[in-house]
Design a protein around this nucleic acid. Structure first.
Length: 263
DNA sequence: ATGGTTGAGGTTCAA
């Protein structure tokens, strides 16, 4: 089974790019974030025609929005609300093989890394804490879970272009990485990409639109992740980050990530 | 220190 995740930054604008990705990678399951559209405008038929008949879509007007597109049937699907808000950031499906797939879009957190001064940052920290207790209360490490999405946090030193320079920048502050590590520990999640890519090797999935030449400056961050619980670790077969997608016409600022599992 | 760009949906906000 191949599972992919991509913050697409408007699914209506970039449906053709998503089709290009589906053709190129042929994932069984694709998790999308920042779809930015109410469900009635989601290009469902386009993906249905491409072979992705099983869809769990949860969007809203203008912002956020998540979706799971699959060639494999679902036996259950849910919408989850974090921090008491219905803001379209967390959905889940159960697959026929018993694994549960969660698609997550963690709040970006604004610019100022101070929860007192910045409500968005406070919300981001609370969101990760909320997920941590929610996963810990509801599941055990022995349950087969895959969680994928835009976590908006780069946890390791080599998940950013400069560890020192980004310690005070939202996405890489200790306040965020400590909480993300606690969430990872709660269900003993394995970071499936870092399972294959050594920690001392740079790895990015996002490059700002605000750099004139993203490839030349290469000030990237690894914000998009796929984690699995212990029973799925022996099934991990490989990973890929489609850096080339950052050079597609009218690209998203995030690139797709995928993991292969022997399931 | 600042500004740089993009998308949605309006004439601004979030990323």
């Amino acid at each position: 089974m191949r599972i992919a995740t991509w913050n697409i930054n408007s699914v209506r604008l970039r449906a053709p790019l998503a089709l290009e990705l589906l053709t190129l990678w042929q994932p069984d399951v694709l998790c999308l974030q920042e779809t930015k559209t109410p469900d009635e405008f989601f290009p469902a038929q386009t993906f249905h025609d491409a072979g992705y008949a099983y869809q769990h879509i949860h969007g809203m007007k203008g912002y956020n929005g998540v979706a799971i597109l699959s060639r494999i049937p679902f036996t259950a699907q849910d919408v989850h609300h974090r921090c008491g808000r219905e803001d379209c950031r967390h959905i889940a499906v159960r697959l026929e093989n018993g694994a549960e797939v969660h698609c997550l879009y963690v709040p970006a957190g604004g610019d100022i890394p101070d929860p007192q001064a910045n409500d968005k940052f406070a919300h981001k920290l609370a969101f990760v804490e909320d997920m941590t207790t929610w996963f810990a209360d509801r599941y055990a490490p022995a349950d087969p879970l895959i969680i994928a999405g835009d976590f908006n946090i780069a946890p390791l030193e080599n998940d950013v272009w400069s560890h020192k320079q980004l310690l005070d920048v939202v996405c890489h502050t200790p306040a965020e990485t400590d909480r993300l590590n606690a969430m990872q520990g709660a269900l003993s999640f394995t970071d499936a990409v870092r399972h294959f890519v050594p920690d001392d090797e740079k790895c990015y999935t996002w490059w700002s639109y605000r750099n004139r030449d993203w490839k030349k400056s290469n000030r990237g961050r690894r914000l998009d992740h796929i984690w699995v619980t212990p029973p799925l670790v022996p099934a991990l077969e490989g990973q890929a980050v489609l850096q080339a997608a950052r050079d597609w016409e009218k690209p998203s600022d995030h690139v797709p990530v995928c993991v292969d599992l022997a399931l």
